[in-house]
Design a protein around this nucleic acid. Structure first.
Length: 239
DNA sequence: CGCTTTTGACCAGCGC
DNA sequence: GCGCTGGTCAAAAGCG
């Protein structure tokens, strides 16, 4: 059921003093997504330094009228594709301007990752001896910092932190973010070869609101059963 | 036993 | 150049 199809009304606006820019979505009244959510806000939410930096990158590509950028698969378009219903109302993605360069760097980073994984637990240990662990790690870190996958975030009124979007996630980190009493959690898609990540945090001004930021695109279908997905479709907030 | 979560450490980027 | 902050890693612990 997630990602939903875009059929919402977009309202550009500034929301709260810490949000430098925000694109709000008013879901159709007969639909609800996420399951526990009532309100959503799409676009770049300035949640302190982290998301703010993405905003700075993404804003130039946001059309002035709606704050929504066309995207060739980035942003929500990716999710529409993954659910078999690619939306024409793709939301803006942060990183269109990086283009090929970003992709190349990204590929390099992924190769490094595979390289590390393959060598750390296989018989192919000769190669890893050629590079020190520290050097490999440095290379990996450099790569990961340059990568800017398409991202979008939304705000949800929810009591649970992790919204069920149909994909399986593994938590790989948690961080206390400055000026917030709630930690930010980092998740990675458990599907092999899928590099999608998401961050989950609560709004400092309103702890009932959950900010979810997705990064990257799924290369697979949601892990939930098709039947279950179909069953949940009618209660989903479709995009 | 395998998978997931927790958590401290590490590093790069950024602002001053 | 230095300090701060966000993002990630990886070992240990927890859980089913």
């Amino acid at each position: 059921m997630f990602p939903p199809k875009v059929s919402a009304v977009l309202n550009q606006g500034f929301v709260e003093d810490r949000m430098s820019f925000c694109t709000q979505i008013s879901p159709p009244p007969h639909l609800s997504f996420p399951p526990h959510g009532i309100q959503q806000t799409l676009g770049g939410l300035n949640m302190g330094g982290g998301v703010a930096s993405y905003l700075k990158e993404g804003l130039p590509s946001i059309p002035s009228q709606y704050g929504v950028a066309s995207s060739d698969g980035g942003g929500l378009g990716q999710f529409g594709a993954s659910s078999g219903q690619r939306s024409s109302n793709s939301l803006w993605s942060y990183d269109e301007e990086e283009g090929d360069l970003g992709n190349k760097i990204s590929s390099a980073g992924e190769d490094d990752h595979k390289y590390l994984k393959n060598n750390s637990c296989s018989s192919n240990k000769n190669n890893i001896n050629n590079l020190s662990v520290g050097a490999i790690r440095m290379k990996k870190l450099k790569a990961r910092k340059k990568v800017r996958e398409p991202r979008f975030c939304f705000k949800t009124l929810s009591e649970v932190d992790v919204l069920d979007d149909g994909y399986k996630w593994r938590k790989y980190g948690q961080k206390i973010v400055k000026n917030t009493q709630h930690p930010r959690s980092y998740y990675r898609c458990t599907e092999s070869n899928c590099q999608v990540k998401k961050r989950v945090e609560r709004l400092a001004e309103d702890p009932r609101m959950v900010i979810t930021t997705y990064e990257g695109r799924h290369l697979h279908s949601p892990s939930r059963d098709e039947d279950e997905l179909r069953a949940s479709d009618h209660i989903s907030f479709l995009w």
